[in-house]
Design a protein around this nucleic acid. Structure first.
Length: 227
DNA sequence: TTATGATCATCG
DNA sequence: CGATGATCATAA
């Protein structure tokens, strides 16, 4: 379903070429490209940049069982940068299905599949810059290096161990070196079902996986290392 | 309601 | 003042 969307790119090259067209654009120019208006109040349009970039690049929207570019196996993530050119916030990766987390292996984990190939698209998010004048940067097609892969798997296994034991109440964003678990909900009153320590159904906060800012920081810094 | 896109705002 | 927990918008 891509009625209002650009056609999905057929190749990585095509996708990267489209990214080059985005590089340097301001958010106001992006809005023109996607035939949208800049949000009246950015505070009430938190996901706006990500959604417009999806539209521009022809990512599949609202899909839940596939990466943004299913044929390429690539996940798209916009990466807001602060005034110092660094990620300030954690990056949401995916929802955690608390009712279906039995006996998953890291290699089969949805969060792992998403993170196999990520197209990072950094952009200026400093509030010192007027919203419409913030610029989009150069895309980075990334795959975790061995060390990063190890860190991710380690955190995931620690987290999943607790979740599988029904200990989601004892989990917090404090766990995990690079991958963390945090609430992912409309608000603190929206609950979802899960099993508690005794295997009994209970109501709990919906959770999601997030990447810590230090981790995404290291990803964009990799680009400046000699190869 | 669940999942996507995220940032906000308070607290330690 | 950075990180955690809370919150906002939208699609299906």
């Amino acid at each position: 379903m891509a009625s209002k969307h650009t056609a999905a790119p057929a190749s990585v090259e095509e996708l990267l070429e489209n990214c080059r067209k985005l590089a340097g654009l301001t958010l106001a120019e992006l809005a023109r490209q996607t035939q949208t208006d800049l949000p009246f109040s950015p505070i009430h349009a938190k996901g706006w940049v990500g959604q417009q970039v999806e539209k521009f690049l022809g990512a599949s929207a609202g899909s839940k069982a596939e990466p943004d570019f299913p044929n390429l196996g690539i996940e798209l993530k916009t990466l807001p940068l602060n005034a110092n050119g660094q990620p300030q916030e954690s990056t949401y990766v995916c929802h955690i299905q608390l009712m279906a987390l039995k006996k998953q292996s890291w290699s089969q984990a949805w969060v792992n599949k998403i993170l196999q190939r990520v197209l990072w698209l950094p952009y200026e998010a400093s509030k010192k810059i007027e919203y419409g004048k913030r610029k989009i940067g150069h895309a980075i097609l990334w795959q975790p290096d061995p060390r990063q892969a190890r860190q991710l798997q380690q955190d995931w296994e620690e987290i999943m161990d607790k979740l599988c034991m029904g200990e989601q109440q004892q989990l917090s964003a404090h766990h995990g070196q690079v991958l963390q678990v945090r609430p992912k909900a409309a608000n603190a009153r929206s609950l979802t079902q899960a099993y508690d320590e005794n295997g009994q159904l209970c109501q709990t906060l919906p959770l999601g996986f997030y990447l810590r800012p230090d981790f995404t920081r290291s990803i964009i810094e990799q680009r400046y290392l000699p190869r």
